[in-house]
Simulated scan of single mutants.
Amino acid sequence: MSRPFGTGPLSRVAARTYTLLVVEALFAAATAPGLALLVVLGRDAGDIPLAAVAALPVGPALSAALFALHRQPADLTDLHPAAAFLRGYRLNALGALRIWAPLLAVLTVVAVVLAHRSAAGVPAWWLALLVALAAAATLVAVTALVIVSLFVFRPGDVLRLAVHFLAGRPVTALGVAGLLLAAAAVTLLLSEAVLLLLAAGYAAALLTVTRPMIAGIRERFVA
């Protein structure tokens, strides 16, 4: 007995690949000005604030990618990833920036202090504290970005939910932390541009590791 069109494994792989390619293309278009600036910037400490400005479009674009990938329809013959991405960008850009911009500000301050640690005479224990603060802020912000991309809550509630699920679900926290470490490794070993070109796959992986959190929010906090 033959399967209905669009239900076979090859069809699902093709549909997923198509969705990822479209989302990646739109992500690249949405972050193109920042990506161009990142490419020309060096690794000089004086360029850190400019790099933060260049990274501002990444937050709304990543939110739109999460929205589009999460809403891939069960009917694989009815794929509209471009429309989903644009709708997600329109709905969530401001909420994403409320999370992303403060995170970039924190990371910029920490990066500047680390870059000038010798001249400033900052003690090692203080540097370790700053790195821990930056890591914790990034973990919470990225998790909050997933929440704000898929649900409608007040900004304070988004952050409380992110902290609640990170503390209460170690598997989710470890999954997000692992993806952040992988992103940091790609950035350090290759470049920020390479990481941005892998954004759709990163967003898909982020949805996978936060799936228990997404299900928990839907069950407990969404009527």
Rank of each mutant, 00 (worst) to 15 (best):
A205N: 09
A135I: 13
A55Y: 06
L66E: 10
A173F: 12
A84G: 04
V112G: 00
V109S: 06
L197P: 02
L107P: 00
W126F: 14
L62A: 15
V152D: 11
T138F: 08
A184M: 09
F5L: 15
V106P: 06
A115E: 06
G95N: 12
A64Q: 13
Y89H: 14
A183G: 15
L38A: 05
L145H: 07
R12C: 03
L62G: 09
L139K: 11
R71K: 08
L107G: 05
A83K: 13
D47K: 01
I99L: 15
R169G: 00
R3H: 12
A185T: 12
L161C: 02
L26V: 13
W126K: 04
R169Q: 14
A55Q: 10
R117C: 01
V109I: 08
Q72L: 14
D78L: 15
A51D: 02
T77D: 14
D157L: 04
A55I: 05
E192H: 09
L21T: 13
G156N: 00
L21P: 03
A132C: 11
A52E: 02
W100V: 07
F153G: 04
A28N: 09
P155I: 01
F151T: 03
A96T: 08
A30M: 14
P4H: 10
V146W: 11
L20R: 13
A84F: 07
F67T: 00
A105T: 13
A36W: 12
A93I: 03
V122A: 00
E192P: 02
L66V: 14
G201C: 07
A162T: 08
W100Y: 10
M1Y: 07
L198H: 03
L20C: 06
F221A: 02
V122P: 02
L174M: 15
P102M: 05
G175C: 10
A132P: 07
S191P: 01
R211Y: 10
T172Y: 04
